[in-house]
């Protein structure tokens, strides 16, 4: 699966595409099947909004314990916030999807480690 992401021009906030709009929570992002032409179409539409968003791109997702999460660390950190300030960024809101993202194990990870986020602090 894939999701479409960008940063909002006016404040830089990370946003995701959902039914023709940009939303702030990854949990609300529309998920595109890998071969769904709607993904690239949405990307094209997003790139056509240069006064709304910048850096529009699709990200790969991976399933982790029943919830789709961004595949790469970088994208998980964008969807959550910095790991050194757990009350900063989107993660501050909490909730099931945030918790799942924080504990996600990547499909490409070969070792048992790789929790993105330290669970204790």
């Amino acid at each position: 699966m894939k999701a479409l992401t960008a940063n909002r021009l006016s404040d830089g906030d990370v946003v995701f595409w959902s039914a023709g709009q940009w939303v702030e929570r990854f949990a609300d992002a529309h998920l595109f099947a890998d071969d769904d032409p709607a993904g690239p179409e949405a990307e094209k539409a997003g790139k056509g909004q240069p006064t709304v968003v910048i850096d529009v791109y699709l990200i790969d997702l991976v399933e982790s314990e029943g919830i789709w999460t961004p595949l790469s660390y970088r994208e998980r950190i964008r969807a959550l916030g910095p790991t050194n300030h757990l009350h900063h960024g989107k993660q501050a809101e909490g909730g099931a999807v945030i918790a799942a993202l924080q504990q996600a194990h990547g499909a490409s990870r070969s070792t048992g480690r790789v929790n993105l986020i330290k669970r204790t602090k």
Binding site: S10, G12, V14, P50, P82
Partner: peptide
């Protein structure tokens, strides 16, 4: 000029960088 669309991001980026303004992961 950027917010109004008069400048594109490609044109604006070097100008904002000259003022120390980067786009990072979560914000500027």
């Amino acid at each position: 000029r950027r917010l109004s669309g008069e400048l594109t991001e490609d044109q604006f980026k070097p100008l904002r960088l000259m003022n120390g303004l980067y786009l990072q992961l979560h914000a500027y």
